[in-house]
Amino acid sequence: MEMGNHSWGTDFILVGLFQYGQMDALLFTVITILFAVALLGNITLVLLIRLDQRLHTPMYFLLSQLSIIDMMYISTTVPKMAANFLSDTKNISFLGCEIQAFVFLSLGGSEALLLGFMSYDRYIAICRPLHYPVLMSRKICCSMVSCAWSSSSFNALVHVLYAFQLPFCGSRIVNHFFCEVPSLLPLVCEDTSQYEHTILMSGLVILLLPFLAILASYARVLVVVFQMRSGKGQSRALSTCSSHLTVASMFYVTTLSTYTQPHSLHSPSRDKVLAVLYSIVTPVLNPFIYSLRNKEVMGALRRQMG
């Protein structure tokens, strides 16, 4: 396969959310505010979980890991996107594009797997409470986090190494606001149908399987919750699980729509809207969904504020 200047000779050009023009300043302001809110919300949640002894439980340990991933996740795309609003050139180097795609895929896969592990935590806590200290020990929680990071990083490395050795030719204009593997395939001047099948299989394993596990675990949780005699217990269990299910549904539905469809069915405008939802909106909403509907987190916030 010939690479030569097809791959390394020219930078990519990111089109962005819209064709840049008179709205650049407004879009820059909106994106910067969302970025700041996401960082502030996730940092606050991580610090609360770190400082408050009452939140030193497996559920909040996994939640703190989710917040760390979200901070890195939104930082992978938004700074470059915001800079492009104020720049005359929208270029990103070949190496920069490759690194961005790898980090984004790694973090996205980690979040997908971690959300699945969080649903397992809630399933054990509600359906098998007597076994909870054993099945959700510190060692097991750390193993879950390590598994999420390592498996998603390996998956991302394989995809990025393969995708970026394909021959890019003709236009180097990426109709997206960051380097995402599906958005780069239209620039490849050879048949990518076989590789698209690989992306589909990865999406089913990394995204669909954890989502199905979440739905199955919460179906069982709902059965147990409605058998409870304590109204307070029902309310608390439903509040925690509904928050997690809200976050998971938004993330999985949008990412599955992007990574499990063939290239011929992709629409750049639709892909960008979906990418905004799972790469920007989800990291912004996650800390607020988990904190505003969680009495323990709000209690910790009040205690830390004196």
Results as ranks from 00 to 15, higher is better:
2 E>P: 13
7 S>M: 08
14 L>T: 03
15 V>N: 06
19 Q>K: 08
23 M>S: 11
26 L>V: 14
27 L>S: 08
27 L>K: 07
28 F>R: 05
29 T>E: 11
29 T>K: 12
31 I>V: 03
33 I>G: 07
34 L>G: 03
37 V>T: 14
39 L>C: 03
49 I>G: 04
49 I>D: 05
49 I>R: 10
49 I>K: 02
50 R>E: 08
50 R>M: 14
51 L>H: 13
52 D>T: 12
52 D>E: 14
53 Q>N: 09
56 H>E: 03
58 P>R: 00
59 M>T: 13
59 M>H: 06
61 F>R: 13
64 S>Q: 01
69 I>D: 00
70 D>M: 10
71 M>E: 10
72 M>A: 01
75 S>N: 01
77 T>F: 06
79 P>H: 11
79 P>C: 01
82 A>C: 15
83 A>G: 15
85 F>L: 10
86 L>A: 06
88 D>K: 13
89 T>P: 06
94 F>K: 07
95 L>N: 08
97 C>S: 08
97 C>T: 04
98 E>W: 15
98 E>Y: 11
98 E>F: 15
100 Q>I: 00
101 A>W: 02
101 A>L: 02
101 A>F: 03
102 F>Q: 03
103 V>M: 02
103 V>P: 01
107 L>Q: 01
109 G>C: 07
110 S>R: 01
118 M>K: 10
121 D>V: 05
122 R>C: 06
125 A>I: 01
127 C>W: 03
127 C>K: 05
129 P>D: 10
131 H>R: 09
133 P>T: 09
134 V>L: 13
135 L>D: 09
135 L>M: 07
135 L>H: 05
137 S>L: 02
139 K>A: 15
139 K>G: 09
139 K>E: 12
140 I>G: 00
140 I>C: 10
142 C>S: 05
142 C>E: 13
146 S>F: 12
147 C>Y: 12
147 C>V: 12
151 S>C: 14
152 S>H: 07
152 S>V: 04
155 N>S: 13
157 L>N: 04
158 V>Y: 06
160 V>M: 02
162 Y>Q: 05
162 Y>A: 05
162 Y>V: 03
164 F>R: 00
168 F>N: 00
169 C>W: 01
172 R>P: 07
173 I>N: 04
175 N>F: 06
184 L>A: 00
184 L>Q: 04
186 P>I: 09
188 V>F: 03
189 C>A: 13
191 D>K: 12
194 Q>V: 15
195 Y>T: 09
201 M>R: 15
203 G>E: 07
207 L>Y: 03
216 A>M: 10
217 S>W: 05
218 Y>M: 08
219 A>V: 08
223 V>P: 00
223 V>Y: 11
225 V>P: 02
225 V>Q: 05
227 Q>N: 12
228 M>S: 14
228 M>D: 06
228 M>K: 07
232 K>V: 09
237 A>E: 00
241 C>E: 05
242 S>V: 06
247 V>L: 07
253 V>M: 06
260 T>Q: 07
261 Q>P: 03
262 P>S: 11
262 P>I: 12
267 S>G: 12
269 S>C: 04
271 D>A: 01
277 L>I: 06
279 S>Y: 00
280 I>S: 05
283 P>I: 01
284 V>Y: 00
285 L>V: 12
286 N>W: 13
287 P>G: 01
288 F>Y: 12
289 I>F: 14
291 S>F: 06
297 V>Q: 06
305 M>G: 13
